[in-house]
Design a protein around this nucleic acid. Sequence first.
DNA 1: TTGTAAATGCAATATATTTGCATTTACATA
DNA 2: TATGTAAATGCAAATATATTGCATTTACAA
Lengths: 148, 148
Amino acid sequence: MSIMVCMHSEDIKEELREKGIKNTRAKSLLLHILKNAEAPMDVNNLHAECQKETSVNLVTVYRTLQQFHEKALVEEFMGKDGANQYEYIPEGSIAHPHFQCEKCNKVICLEELGFDDALYFSNRAKHHKINSIHIMLNGVCEECLSLP
Amino acid sequence: MSIMVCMHSEDIKEELREKGIKNTRAKSLLLHILKNAEAPMDVNNLHAECQKETSVNLVTVYRTLQQFHEKALVEEFMGKDGANQYEYIPEGSIAHPHFQCEKCNKVICLEELGFDDALYFSNRAKHHKINSIHIMLNGVCEECLSLP
DNA sequence: TTGTAAATGCAATATATTTGCATTTACATA
DNA sequence: TATGTAAATGCAAATATATTGCATTTACAA
């Protein structure tokens, strides 16, 4: 991971600068982890991942994720377990549904829809201002199904 | 409200009995409120609504909602604000998307989809066991938009 | 009528998240 | 390069939220 952080550091620095965020250890590390994640992560996942690299306070992780979300660097949505999930969405990419396991709380990204969900669903709430749309499937994941 | 509770009491009693739940003040009142609600409600909404009628402990509301969900009397899903939402789904009715306001946290039911969402989305998570699907739109509701 | 399991309320506990504040850090600019 | 300033950080404490334990009450079947 440390090699990766170094390799990508220029991109990360630039992305933080664009958003007016200081390039600190915690900020660049968290953005790096989020950009390379395969699925949304919650505060604890991200905090644990940070610890592999260096010591970062849990409060800092909370505050950084809030900031990233406010500055539209990442998407935020509430998981089935009541913990916010964070996901880096590359410029111009299309939203996709998620699955979250009720046993282990792991979140998995699913294939994107075959149509424009924003248009399709937002017609149903014309009088409100829509900021985000989330499709969440819940149940038991393959791994947990195979447990005793 | 008290008149309504009396009018519907036989239906409610029967429904509780079917699920093996004792017909107590709190249980029948909560089921009544949920069956007559226009939109999903959270623990605090439901507790407040109960107080209009009679005194019910908040812990009892928590425990009752858990039980109703376990016995499949109501649907449970997590709101944007981290509070579980509960909704009574009549036998044979079709799922619908929801909108939740980021300012006041109110949840609104939207028109049902024009296709079978369970089939459509669950194809994307074939290896997992799907228990529920929720489509949630977030933003600012009409009422909050009109505030200063 | 009465035995028993379920339901309830209250207090205490556990957990998650936020806030206050002193200190440190990044970074613009002098 | 030095330095002023606002942002970022860590720690402790506060707050908010949800759960548990336990004694008491209640519904309801036998």
